[in-house]
């Protein structure tokens, strides 16, 4: 599609003379429209980003001045910082479980709310509430209560006979991360909205056609809904992955990285090192590493998307 326009551009520019003025005008108009964004981008994002790249190559403590050390921070991170590896491992573990779980709950509920029934509006709002509460103090208090050894979660497990003994889910090195993953799965509001929007755009005719072919509800889901929803799933996947790679508040208010650093996600480590301990240079290097990593993972996901994401436009 874009090639067509580029070709047009060329034709236009070849048509110089009379159209040159028009061409300049068009360019100018375009830039005027993106100018506010461009200024904001350069001032608030690009410039600070480059500056942090520079800081990552310096030794810079929060109350001192930066002094150039080349790649030393990066070398130290990779060769002499076990916590960096711990936090990477924890973050990947979290992302690998939390993202699919959140997307699955979001999709399931979107399917439930797809059809308008009485009170659907109320229900949708109610199911969005956990996401609105975000990382507020109420969540932190409740989560700690819920998953403590005296908490309701244990009451439940003991009552249904899954467990004999109560354990502290928050305090147990192997399970603490799961309290945070469950929180993530529970706050599925925004991907749910996006799924609802995606579902709405699937043409009804396709279902009718499938029904005529004798497909049941389940078959319809797998032959119509799921394939047509793959672009939306992919979109949600990217958005949530980026978000969860940098998860901070939810961890910070519930476990603060403990026990035994088993919930020390990357953003919490970066915060501790860069802000709390004041190693700005080192912190900037940590931030750039995650930026590069995130980019690589995103590119890889895009590469796989050709295999499973269904693009409507291909049929055109």
């Amino acid at each position: 599609m874009n090639n067509k326009f580029e070709a047009l551009d060329t034709v236009r520019s070849l048509d110089a003379g009379m159209n040159k003025k028009k061409w300049i005008k068009e360019n100018l108009t375009g830039y005027v429209f993106i100018l506010p964004w461009l200024i904001g981008f350069l001032a608030f994002l690009a410039f600070p980003l480059l500056r942090s790249l520079y800081y990552s190559l310096t030794e810079y403590t929060i109350v001192g001045d930066p002094s150039w050390v080349g790649l030393r921070n990066y070398i130290e991170i990779f060769t002499d910082d076990p916590k960096f590896w711990t936090s990477l491992k924890v973050t990947f573990y979290y992302v690998v479980f939390a993202v699919p779980l959140r997307l699955a709950s979001a999709l399931a509920l979107a399917l439930v709310f797809r059809k308008a029934r009485p009170f659907t509006n109320f229900y949708r709002a109610a199911y969005y509430v956990p996401s609105i509460l975000g990382g507020s103090v109420a969540i932190s208090v409740i989560w700690r209560q819920l998953f403590s050894s005296q908490g309701a979660f244990n009451d439940f497990l003991v009552a249904i006979g899954v467990m004999g003994d109560r354990i502290s889910w928050i305090g147990h090195p192997d399970y603490a991360i799961w309290t945070i993953i469950i929180l993530a799965a529970w706050q599925f509001g925004s991907p749910m909205i996006i799924f609802l929007a995606g579902l709405k755009q699937i043409p009804k005719g396709l279902y009718e056609a499938a029904e005529i072919d004798g497909a049941g509800k389940i078959q319809q889901f797998f032959s119509v809904t799921l394939p047509l929803l793959t672009p939306v799933i992919f979109f949600n996947l990217i958005m949530q992955m980026v978000k969860m790679f940098m998860v901070f508040t939810q961890v910070y208010i519930i476990t603060e990285g403990g026990p035994l650093n088993r919930t020390l996600v990357y953003a919490v480590y970066l915060y501790r090192k860069g802000i709390s301990n004041g190693y700005l240079g080192y912190g900037s290097a940590l931030a750039w590493i995650i930026l590069v990593l995130l980019t690589i993972v995103t590119i890889l996901l895009f590469k796989t998307s050709n295999k499973w994401v269904y693009y409507e436009s291909e049929g055109e």
Binding site: R144, S148, S149, G171, A176
Partner: peptide, 9 residues
């Protein structure tokens, strides 16, 4: 014990 200390607010 360790877990109680971890979970106490």
């Amino acid at each position: 014990d360790a877990m109680q200390r971890q979970e106490s607010p």
